[in-house]
Each structure stands twice: as structure tokens, then as C-alpha cells.
Write a protein that binds this DNA or RNA. Structure first.
Lengths: 197, 197
DNA sequence: CCTTGTCCCGACCGATCGTTCGGTTACTCT
DNA sequence: AGAGTAACCGAACGATCGGTCGGGACAAGG
């Protein structure tokens, strides 16, 4: 077998350390010295694994975006009544948010100062539009209330879901992933769904 | 009369410029040179009006926090049935968010790297707890649904409201403040309020 | 006229930024 | 044992960071 044990860093393991620090201090507020200290290696050693600071950010947001876009390819997001596909996507978004928590957290805080950040913002907008179209279709079906504008509702629902990264912590037995998913679905759809149906 | 005209900077007018740049580039991503360029004066001139970069941040988040805490002192937030006080606070939060948009935006992005930031985070937590208590009281009255945990619901509602700063722009005639306020109230309370009452 | 104070500037400070480089350890394979 | 290489290090790079300093322009008040 090849290399049974590995107590050295790979780009992936280094990334998981870096992302933690990025979240705590902010990307711009994190120096390579901070990363080195957190990883337990010297500053220059980091460059043996990655080309620089920005690559770490790029890898992180890529992972988050892949997880989110992956939802749209799943069967329940593609076939069926629009309002039910929407509910499926909303529930899966919460699951991806919690399972890929640090990476999504970083994605949601990107401001667009560098090329990597601007690319991430663009892909994020794409995803938002895809979900907004789903809500629009559900509205056309008459399955969601009509007295709140679709674009506005989309943004508010996204806001609620995305805010999960601000407080959800998977380790402690505070609230489970399932509990959060259910709560979001209840709040969103008991507010959105047309009661008169 | 004293000093009829003023085409020079005051700490307040300088702050409004600085806050814009802070929002666009992030606080850590903004250098004093960036601020100087945006204000049209030299870097060293900024220090004639404020003691430094951190004071600008402190002034900004203070203004946001004053606006939010001011809500809790208003009459409709102090007297009446808990669920109605809660709705009033929610609506007023949206109004303060939109009217003090740049300052609240900055407040919500604070991470806690400096003393000023940690102080802001602490006061923010205080405010959150005050509103959470209101929701708890409404739950005790039986006015909000019981199948979603109060703490969880508070966080999700806060998430929805706070996310407004990510897209609301007062200048363009996209969506008006009143429209946003109504939409939030509808979504939140048609989801939260106990239908069986 | 001269002072006083506000407002601003260019030049510069030590510190820290992300990154590079030459070299050393330590493990793998033959 | 010896060669090759992955992993790492300390020292240093130019650039930029937040902040300081001494002084100039200009208006108000005497």
C-alpha cells in the first residue's frame, strides 16, 4: 500500500485549518502568520502546499458553491410541482449549510475585493436566481401567497436560511440539523403557502 | 450667527464617507489611504478630525446600536400584549435598519478583532436577548406557535430582518421601506402566529 | 499689522503585510 | 548506504499598513 500514514499537511487539511481562522478573524484580518501559528508550521511552509492566501479562499468558496449547485441537480429539485421542489431545495440548502458550515460561512462573507471573491459573488447570484425562478413558478401555480412580491420574498427567505451560519454549531448538542431544517421549513412555508389554497 | 457655511469636514461628515468605504471593502480591507482618496483629503488630514481608524468604526456601530436600543424605549414596545409589542419591535427594526442602513450594515459585519468590535458584539447580544424575551413572553401567552423552539425562532427571524442590509438600497425606486416592513411582518407572523389562536 | 486657531499637507516612522529564497531535515525507494 | 524528494524552516524582500510630525495656507479678531 502507499503511504499508510500521513501526519503532514495536504492542501485539503491545511484548508480546513485556514478556513477556521478566516471565519474567526475575517479573510482580510487574517495574516499568513496567523495561519502559520494555527497550523503549527512556519509561514513559508504554507507555500509548499498552496500558491498563496487567495488560493485558500478560492478552494473554500468553491467547495461551498459546489455543494449548493449540487442541490439543483438532484431529482427532487428537478421533477414535480414547483412548490414541492422549492420546499425540497430549501430543506437541502439548510442541510448543505450545516454540513459544509465553515465553507458556506466564508462564501456568504465574501465582499468582492479580489478576483476570486468577485467570481464567487457571481456564482452565488446565479444560484440565487435559480431558486428565485423556482419560487416564481410556484407563485404562477398559485401555491404561494400573492400579496408579497416574489423577488422580495426570495431575498427574505434566503436571508433567513443564510443567517444560520451565524449561530449554528454542529459539535455542541444545542440544536440538531434536523431540528433546524424543520423549523426553517415551518416558518418559511407557513408564512409563504397560500392558506386558502 | 456662528460659521454660517461649512465646506470642510466634521467628524460626522467624514464618518459618512468612511462608512461607505468600510461597507464596500470591509473594515480590515480598507486602508487610511483608501479613506483619504474617497474623502478627497490627505491621509494625515483625517487625523485632524478623528483619533484614528478605530474611532470611525466605533462611531458607526454606536449610531446603529443607539437606533436599535431606542426602539425598546418607545411606548408601543413597553406596554400592551407581548405579541403586539413584538410585532411593533419587528416593524421598527426594519425601519431603523433601512433609515440607518450603512451604520447597521457595518454593525452586523463586526467580527470582534478589536476592543471596539468586541464591545459592539456585546451590546448586540444584549439587544437580541431583549427581543428574545419578548418572543418568550408571547409564547407564554400562547400567541405564537409552540412547535418551534423560541430560541431557534428568534434567531431565524433576526436572520431574516438583518439580511435586509444585504440588498436594500434606499435611492433606487426598487422597493420602498414600507413595502419591506409589511413583507417582513407578513412572513414572520403568518409563520409564527398561532393559527388556532 | 500681528496673533490665534482651523484645516490641511508631504514626508516619514516602525511594524506588518504576502511572498520568495536558499538551505536543512527526514522519510522512501533502490 | 546512497539518491531522490516531500516537508519544512529562518531570513529577508519590496510594498503597504496605521499613525506621527512640523509646517503652510487662510480666515477671523484685535
Amino acid at each position: 500500500m502507499t503511504t499508510a500514514k500521513r501526519d503532514t499537511y495536504t492542501p485539503e487539511t491545511l484548508l480546513s485549518v485556514a478556513v477556521q481562522v478566516f471565519i474567526e478573524r475575517g479573510y482580510d484580518g487574517t495574516s499568513m502568520e496567523h495561519l502559520a501559528k494555527a497550523a503549527g508550521i512556519s509561514k513559508s511552509s504554507i507555500y509548499h502546499h498552496v500558491t498563496g492566501k487567495e488560493e485558500l479562499l478560492r478552494r473554500a468558496v468553491s467547495r461551498a458553491l459546489d455543494g449548493l449547485f449540487g442541490i439543483l441537480d438532484e431529482e427532487h429539485a428537478r421533477v414535480g410541482r414547483a412548490v414541492e421542489r422549492l420546499e425540497y431545495v430549501v430543506r437541502r440548502m439548510v442541510e448543505v449549510l450545516t454540513s459544509e458550515l465553515p465553507y458556506v460561512t466564508l462564501l456568504l462573507r465574501v465582499r468582492g475585493n479580489t478576483d476570486a471573491e468577485r467570481w464567487a459573488l457571481e456564482r452565488r447570484r446565479d444560484f440565487d436566481h435559480r431558486v428565485a425562478d423556482l419560487l416564481k413558478a410556484a407563485a404562477a401555480d398559485g401555491d404561494v401567497r400573492g400579496d408579497v412580491e416574489v423577488r422580495l420574498a426570495t431575498r427574505l427567505v434566503f436571508g433567513m436560511i443564510n443567517s444560520i451560519v451565524e449561530w449554528y454549531r454542529p459539535d455542541g448538542r444545542g440544536v440538531g440539523e434536523r431540528e433546524v431544517t424543520d423549523a426553517v421549513a415551518q416558518l418559511v412555508f407557513s408564512g409563504l403557502r397560500n392558506q386558502a389554497q
